[in-house]
């Protein structure tokens, strides 16, 4: 989780990733942020997040993103 938080803060500094669980619904992250975050996560965790994983439920909070990373790592 710490590793993911570091990645997120690097891509989008100034966002309260620890506490906010409506990052997409409240439009804190826009489509460009999502693309940058996915590119950074793919590189850092050596996984392949694709367009089919891009649903608000997967990116609304750091917990959801971490769950997605774990799921893809298992696959």
């Amino acid at each position: 989780m710490e590793e993911l938080l570091e990645v997120l803060k690097k891509v989008k500094p100034g966002v309260d990733f620890e506490n906010n669980s409506n990052l997409i619904d409240e439009e804190i992250l826009d489509p460009f942020d999502i693309v940058s975050i996915v590119a950074a996560i793919n590189e850092e965790f050596d996984i392949q997040i694709t367009a089919k994983d891009i649903v608000p439920e997967n990116f609304n909070s750091i917990d959801k993103m971490y769950a997605l990373v774990e799921k893809l790592e298992e696959e």
């Binding site: 489509p31 999502i34 997040i49 367009a51 891009i54």
Partner: peptide
């Protein structure tokens, strides 16, 4: 356009 052009191309 975001769902079926932007994201598929971006990823």
């Amino acid at each position: 356009l975001r769902e079926y052009i932007f994201y598929p191309i971006s990823f």
